[in-house]
Design a protein around this nucleic acid. Structure first.
Lengths: 109, 109
DNA sequence: ATATCTATTTAGTGATGCTATGTACTGGTA
DNA sequence: TACCAGTACATAGCATCACTAAATAGATAT
């Protein structure tokens, strides 16, 4: 992962994961794999797990332990009502930022 | 400043300031004021100054001390060649992120 | 047995923006 | 004179975040 990307992910990776969970419940290993498919080539596994724990502590997600055929039990996270509110606020903040940056980008000579 | 915004600015504020400098040279106090006008209501002055120093140490900007009629001398920063390369890389990284997020946003139910 | 996926956890690190405060120059005003 | 506001820059200490690195553990195949 480039250093720029690492720094840029701060504050957005959380929203990315909440957005993924808003589409459908998922567990850490699965989320990591999906992110890698989508081009976040070197996302650290530990990062994703830590983030999920943080989201749980914030009360944004619900957790359910589900047995796996291929390994240890999975912790399946799903977005709850609080999480949806939080995600909407995330999109608002993100929109503001993108608008400002788009403006800066087109203003340049 | 909202906590979400604070975290989201990590990694992007640097690019924002470089983008401002790419349009025209500017000094810290001026940049802070301009950011506030553009809606970054509570950007901390100290943050901007620290960032400018960092950019200077990275060799992305050139500095010139210019006397002011209204106070201490200004440190006017301008983007140099290295800074422009860095800014272009920033835009590429930013584009990648916005594309991924736009996809996530439209995919949601 | 051991190697390989699958699946989660966590201690320690570096980078970033914020808080809070201090310094310094100029001009206006009581 | 003394004081204050506006301009302009600097910095020590803090919290948060993603990454590094390593460990644990279950399942299956070699």
């Amino acid at each position: 992962m480039s250093k720029q990307m690492t720094e840029m992910l701060k504050g957005t990776l959380e929203g990315i994961i909440l957005a993924i969970l808003s589409a459908q419940p998922a567990y850490g290993y699965e989320i990591t794999a999906r992110l890698r498919e989508q081009g976040f080539s070197d996302i650290a596994e530990g990062t994703v797990y830590a983030l999920l724990v943080r989201n749980e502590q914030k009360g944004l997600v619900d957790v359910e332990k589900v047995p796996s055929e291929k390994g240890p039990p999975r912790k399946v996270y799903s977005l709850n009502a609080r999480g949806q509110d939080y995600l909407e606020e995330f999109w608002r903040t993100w929109s503001f930022l993108t608008e400002r940056l788009e403006q800066l980008r087109t203003e340049r000579k």
